[in-house]
Design a protein around this nucleic acid. Structure first.
Lengths: 170, 170
DNA sequence: CGGAACTATTGACTATGGGTATACCATCAG
DNA sequence: CTGATGGTATACCCATAGTCAATAGTTCCG
């Protein structure tokens, strides 16, 4: 959807889309080219975009991808809809705690280690916030809020370890 | 890793592992059998588990899977290590906001819709908390903390929309 | 002129997720 | 006896994620 959204700005080449994606959304996780073209191929297959003829200008051949009406309305709908808020009810943190208890490992130690790791990451994000623009700041804050949420949960879980141990022992 | 962890309790059949996984970690997302057996196959392939002979007792044949020493130490390491805290620096929320701005859609409205959806989900989770055991409570609280984190971020982002719009317009 | 580095796309391959269908046996309700 | 339900496992199938390498023209530097 992010690629389709970028394509909704104007017809573009795969190469440019990848650049823009990386610039705005990649943040240390650039898309591989192969994935970009694979995705564009799927979008075309599904009628969300059309692939233009190969244009041989200056440089190697390039193809211009254009969003279709169907694609546009899909973006429209996607932007109007909220994301599904936390429907999963699952978390690796929780799995580790429960397995620690089941296997007789010290779950409390694990939680302490995790707290330390979170605090370290929070310091990193705080640094990033200092020297970036608005984008970096917002992303860092998102991370910080969620790390703080995890810290709260870790404290709560530590307080309830005994009760939890009882429930998973059964 | 969750399956391998469950297998670390005692040698078991795929069927039982699936049941236990669903009971403890599935929470409305039961694993398909095909995935369980595929995963066990991979674990065996990678030397983390061994597949016993087919035992034909009462009922259809069943195979007992046993964790290996290598598997055990992998679980050990995994349990001792903290999870990577928020390394991604990416979020669908952010993508939607940025694309809204790029495409000239009302990003503020989107944020409002999202806030409403989050609040609704928070009420659901609060309900779940009331009537479940410790497990449900902890999972619900995890969700609640993170939803609250998102709400904070939504407010912050709304306050910075103008600055963000400027940065992504360039 | 030779070689980086950039623009631009494709192909082949692996892994994982998830669905459907099927087999086979047992038990219990009717 | 028949058929439904539950236990147990496998075989296919398809889609997406992700990796790596190949190809091929361009520009620019020394």
């Amino acid at each position: 959807m992010a690629l389709l959204g970028l394509l909704d700005r104007e017809p573009s080449h795969g190469y440019d889309l990848k650049r823009d994606y990386d610039a705005y959304f990649g943040r240390g996780r650039p898309l591989p080219f192969s994935q970009v073209y694979a995705t564009l191929g799927r979008l075309a297959r599904d009628g969300k975009a059309v692939i233009g003829e190969a244009e041989s200008g200056a440089g190697p051949d390039r193809k211009r991808y254009t969003i279709t009406e169907e694609g546009k309305s899909e973006v429209e709908v996607w932007l109007a809809e909220p994301i599904l808020p936390e429907p999963h009810f699952q978390t690796e943190l929780f799995v580790k705690v429960v397995l620690s208890l089941m296997l007789g490992r010290p779950a409390e130690e694990y939680l302490d280690v995790q707290r330390t790791a979170h605090l370290a990451r929070m310091r990193e994000l705080t640094d990033v916030k200092q020297k970036g623009g608005v984008v970096d700041m917002l992303l860092a804050d998102h991370g910080l809020f969620h790390l703080e949420a995890d810290l709260c949960w870790i404290d709560l879980t530590e307080a309830r370890l005994a009760a939890l141990a009882e429930e998973v022992a059964a």
